[in-house]
Every structure is written in structure tokens, then in C-alpha cells.
């Protein structure tokens, strides 16, 4: 607990703003790519998890709501949930769903499919979200990606929110696909430990 707060201790506000913007104009969802590329770049270039450790706004949001505001039971999470099987399995699942989303985007780009202005929560529930889209200068595929990507972001936030309430505030960090991926990159890059 450093005495003085740094600029990056307020990135939770950015995460929150991102989620709110998605309720007004879906094209803002594209900004979420930053949460994918920045941690990957830091892991690849610098070989550490500074993103998780310092900058992750979502983690800060969970520790604020679950920790400071106390919306968390603060219980230990079940053993299977922190096992590598689950972490890597969840990462693989996330990858598959992500590529399905990209495929769907491609279909709309190529004109084989019409735009679906819905946000799919937990890969199952298709919520109408059409008021956030008013057309674009480019292909409808641009919007399709935005709807798909926002679905990913909202779904992971909802999952993280549930595990925040049930277990520790930042339980999401244990099975966060980005965290798992950056740790794998770091493991591959790091000098061998004795």
C-alpha cells in the first residue's frame, strides 16, 4: 500500500466508463481492444505482468466494489477453480468463442449474413441492443465486431462480478484469460529458475 496514489490507481474509472459507453454507442466497444493489446505487448516486450499488477482497471473496479464497498463474502474460492486445468481450459474456451465471434464478424463483412444488433451474455442470452447503433460510414461488419467484442467484455465482467461476490474481490484475476495468457508468455520468456 503505497502512501501516495498514482495516476494508474484511477484506471477503474476508465473501465467503468467503457462499460457505460457500450450502453449508448456500441462502436466504443472497439476501445476494449486496448485491454487485449496492452497486456500482451507488456508481456512480450518487457516480460512482466505490469498490466495485471498495476494498470488493470477491471481488477481495480472489483477490489473497489468488493473490497472498499464490501460487496464480497471474502471466502476462499474452490480448489478446482484455481487449478491449471480450469485456468487453461477457460483460456481455451475463451479463445474458441473469440474466434467464433471473429468468424461471425467476417460473415457480416462479406455480406453472407445480416448484422445482428444483439449483445450475447454468457454466450447464451441474446439481449436486444439495437439502440446503440445508428449506422456507420464503413461496413456493418465494423458494428458486428463491436457487438461481439462488447459481449465478451460484458460477459467477463458479469462472471467476475459473481465470483467477486461469492469469493474474494479479485477472484476474476485467478481465471482471467488475459492474465493466464500473459503469465504463460512470461513463463516462456523468463530465465529458468533454480
Amino acid at each position: 500500500m503505497n502512501e501516495k496514489k498514482k495516476w494508474y490507481d484511477y484506471l477503474w474509472a476508465v473501465s467503468l466508463t467503457y462499460l457505460i459507453l457500450g450502453f449508448f454507442n456500441i462502436l466504443f466497444a472497439w476501445l476494449g481492444l486496448l485491454c487485449f493489446f496492452i497486456p500482451l505487448l507488456i508481456a512480450i516486450v518487457k516480460g512482466n505482468k505490469a498490466y495485471c499488477n498495476k494498470y488493470c482497471g477491471r481488477g481495480q473496479l472489483f477490489s473497489l466494489i468488493g473490497g472498499r464497498f464490501g460487496l464480497s463474502r471474502k471466502k476462499d474460492m474452490p480448489k478446482w477453480m484455481k487449478s491449471n486445468y480450469f485456468r487453461y481450459g477457460f483460456l481455451a474456451f475463451f479463445f474458441i468463442m473469440f474466434f467464433l465471434m471473429l468468424w461471425n464478424t467476417w460473415l457480416v463483412f462479406s455480406g453472407a449474413k445480416n448484422l445482428g444488433a444483439v449483445v450475447t451474455l454468457l454466450w447464451t442470452f441474446r439481449l436486444p441492443w439495437h439502440w446503440t447503433y445508428h449506422g456507420t460510414l464503413f461496413s456493418d461488419g465494423v458494428a458486428q465486431f463491436a457487438f461481439g467484442f462488447y459481449s465478451v467484455m460484458l460477459t467477463s465482467t458479469v462472471l467476475g462480478f459473481f465470483t467477486m461476490i461469492l469469493f474474494k474481490p479479485r477472484s476474476w484475476c485467478v481465471y482471467c484469460p488475459m492474465g493466464t495468457m500473459t503469465q504463460l508468455i512470461c513463463k516462456a520468456k523468463a530465465p529458468k529458475e533454480g
Partner: peptide, 24 residues
């Protein structure tokens, strides 16, 4: 072996005694 290197511990340590070297 079980550490996910998230750094939550680092943030709360009042002595700055925790680091996550090389993201491991």
C-alpha cells in the same frame, strides 16, 4: 506453483515487501 502473478498482494503490502519479478 499456484500463484497467478496478479499482484493483488503487492498492492496491499504496507512495507512494499512484495514484487512479481518477470511476471512469474
Amino acid at each position: 506453483r499456484e500463484c497467478v502473478a496478479c499482484g493483488c498482494c503487492m498492492k496491499v503490502c504496507p512495507r512494499n515487501a512484495i514484487t512479481v519479478p518477470n511476471g512469474l
